[in-house]
Amino acid sequence: MAVLFLMKEKGDFVMGDRLWEHEPFDEYELEELTQNLLIKAEKSLKVILPDFYVELMRTQNGGRLFKNSFKINKKNVIADHLLGIGSRKNEGILITPYMIKEWGLPNDIVLISGDGHSWFFLDYRQKKEDPCVTFIDTEENFEIIVANNFKGFIDKLFRDGKVNEFELISESSYTTGQLERVVEQGDDPFLITDSFLYYSVADCDFDWLVSQALIVMDNPDEFIAPEVMAYMMKKIANTEQKISNKDSLVSLAEKIKNHESVEVRKYYTSILNYIN
């Protein structure tokens, strides 16, 4: 079994093999982990996070996994992302208290991967430091310890090429005028996000689309701006070779640099990479 890293150099892990998917618009990747964020998260969750987990989050604070599966009882179980250390209660592992109530999960755990009724979590019921990792499926009423600690969990992840990969596709098509109207009205999260999803792959004037995204960044709905930015990053990645004037990118970067949502701010560095 290949280990996660061979050595540590200048604060970064030298990977023995690939772990992260490295998508330009990864909804699970949070802003860079700071000591202040770590202290606040541990205080909020009332736990000491495993050293190995913390060091991994310092290299990338959550995200989609290239090594996307875990074998349990000879069955491949999808583990296609790791939750990072957020700064707010609905971000990364800080979503744990809410999900415990929502899905009837055990207390004294920290979720690290999963969705809905099935989760992988750090199991602090067993021990308070360097806890084991447990898998639970509430629908099947099934629970099992899968690794003695977080490092053991990472070491057992593997790439399953058969895991279905899908691309979100807009449910409708939108004219530029329709997008402008829903952005101006600002009160229909689905239409706003779906129209940007449509134009993330549809042809349009890039500067125009950025101008509409700049308006959306001021929308008070906390879920709209992050989703729109994810689709904008997809558009930027698909349009990069055709962008000759980077002024609109500069404007977008400045707009999100100090945005109140970490899910929006996290794209700032990525946009700078396209500008430079």
Rank of each mutant, 00 (worst) to 15 (best):
A2P: 15
L4K: 04
M7D: 14
M7C: 11
V14P: 00
G16H: 05
D17N: 14
D17C: 13
D17K: 15
R18M: 12
R18V: 13
H22Q: 11
P24D: 06
P24K: 05
P24M: 08
E27I: 10
Y28M: 14
Y28P: 01
L30N: 09
E31D: 14
N36R: 13
L37M: 13
I39W: 11
E42G: 10
E42Q: 15
S44V: 13
L45N: 08
L49K: 05
F52D: 15
L56P: 03
M57V: 08
N61L: 08
K67T: 08
K67L: 13
F70P: 04
N73I: 01
K75Q: 14
L82A: 06
L83K: 10
G84N: 10
S87H: 03
I93S: 05
K101M: 04
E102M: 11
W103Q: 03
G104Y: 06
G104V: 04
P106E: 00
N107L: 04
D108V: 02
V110Y: 02
I112C: 02
D115H: 12
G116H: 05
G116L: 03
H117I: 00
S118V: 00
L122K: 05
D123V: 01
R125K: 10
K128I: 09
C132E: 09
C132R: 02
I136H: 00
D137F: 00
N141Y: 00
N141D: 03
V146F: 00
V146K: 01
N149R: 03
F150I: 03
K151I: 12
D155Q: 12
D155V: 10
D155N: 14
L157E: 10
L157N: 12
F158E: 10
F158L: 06
D160N: 14
G161Q: 12
N164S: 06
I169M: 15
I169N: 15
G177P: 02
G177M: 06
L179V: 14
L179N: 06
D187T: 09
D187E: 08
P189R: 01
I192N: 01
D194P: 05
S195V: 08
V201D: 13
C204P: 04
C204N: 12
D205I: 02
L209W: 06
V216P: 00
D218H: 08
D221L: 01
F223H: 07
I224K: 01
I224H: 04
A225G: 06
P226S: 02
M229T: 04
Y231G: 09
M233D: 07
K234H: 11
T239Y: 10
K242M: 05
N245G: 01
D247A: 14
L249R: 03
K255Q: 15
I256N: 11
V262Q: 13
V262Y: 02
E263M: 14
Y267K: 09
L272I: 15
N273F: 08
I275M: 00
N276R: 11
N276V: 06
